[in-house]
């Protein structure tokens, strides 16, 4: 290495330093610190707020016997499966496939589907409160009233299904955009050749398009799973985890344990479990991306 190369290498590393410091101090260090906190009885109030005591794996032992924690994990699982893996994916893939046709209003439809994705999470929560409100005058009940269906207190009767529907609404666009990118990489000549050989559109999709977009689908599943696990604001604004704890997804559970019940140590244990799950999925994501250096 010449002196010039050495010097410029140092200069470059210096340029990266502020990024390292900020991410290190406010993302990586907190993530590691949460592991330590989870082994203490840290609290937001009382003696344990100023002088937390080391309690070893106590919080984790408590976690395994805590019905609320398991309930929250199960709710999160259904939430991810229902909204990201099934709802957003099917509607997104469907829209992407249909929008490949030379239709009129294509750009308009495209923008309409993108709109829910662009809305801040609190606004999304606010408008779904009205949408799903009980009584005959709410948007959904009025619409179903036209079909002769009696009005329902949607968020009280079917809380989990409703947050799945609402979150599906919010995320169709991200699935659609990614699927469009995947589909555009499928060479039209192959489909044309299959069509000439007499394949039906369904067969072309099943045996040509689908296998070719499989890597994109896999990537989408990984990304949407981790982003759906991270959701807090939208559901908190919509239900605050209620009624009871019916929609207490893991993010809301961490918040409630830490800042409503003041048990920072216990909340951290839940956070660490969530971190481990997300990082495990992230490792698959790293492999799938094939990073170029």
């Amino acid at each position: 290495m010449t002196t010039y190369d050495k010097r410029s290498s140092w200069q470059l590393q210096l340029l990266l330093l502020p990024c390292l410091l900020l991410i290190g101090a406010l993302v990586i260090y907190p993530a590691l610190y949460s592991v330590y906190l989870s082994l203490t009885n840290a609290s937001l109030v009382g003696v344990a707020a100023t002088h937390p005591r080391f309690v070893g794996p106590g919080n984790y032992l408590r976690l395994f016997g805590d019905g609320g924690f398991w309930h929250s994990l199960v709710v999160t699982l259904w939430f991810v499966l229902g909204s990201a893996v099934i709802g957003q994916f099917l509607l997104g893939l469907g829209s992407a496939l249909l929008l490949r046709r030379p239709l009129r209003f294509k750009n308009l439809i495209n923008s309409i589907i993108l709109l829910p994705n662009a809305v801040p999470e609190v606004v999304a929560g606010y408008i779904w409160i009205s949408m799903l409100a009980g009584g005959e005058q709410s948007t959904l009940n009025r619409l179903l009233g036209l079909l002769g269906i009696p009005s329902v207190q949607w968020l009280e009767r079917f809380p989990l299904v409703m947050i799945i529907v609402a979150n599906t609404w919010r995320g169709i666009a991200s699935a659609m955009i990614l699927m469009m990118a995947g589909l555009s990489a499928v060479p039209p000549e192959i489909c044309e050749a299959a069509r000439i050989d007499g394949a039906s559109p369904r067969q072309i999709f099943r045996f040509i398009t689908l296998p070719l977009i499989m890597p994109t689908i896999f990537l989408y599943m990984l990304v949407s799973t981790v982003t759906t696990i991270s959701i807090f604001g939208f559901i908190y604004a919509l239900t605050r985890g209620g009624p009871g704890n019916a929609t207490e997804i893991i993010g809301i559970y961490i918040y409630n344990q830490s800042f409503t019940a003041f048990q920072l140590g216990y909340g951290s244990a839940v956070a660490v479990v969530t971190l481990v799950i997300s990082i495990a999925i992230g490792l698959f994501y790293v492999r799938a991306l094939k990073v170029q250096v």
Binding site: I23, V27, I28, Y29, P30, A31, Y33, S34, L37, V226, I229, S230, F232, I250, G251, I252, I254, Y255, S258, F259, L264, G267, S268, A271, V272, T274, L275, S278, I279, I281, G282, Y285
Partner: peptide, 12 residues
């Protein structure tokens, strides 16, 4: 770092 869920970081 991008997959770290923000709710998991709020306490630390």
């Amino acid at each position: 770092v991008r997959v770290v869920p923000p709710p998991a970081l709020i306490v630390p």
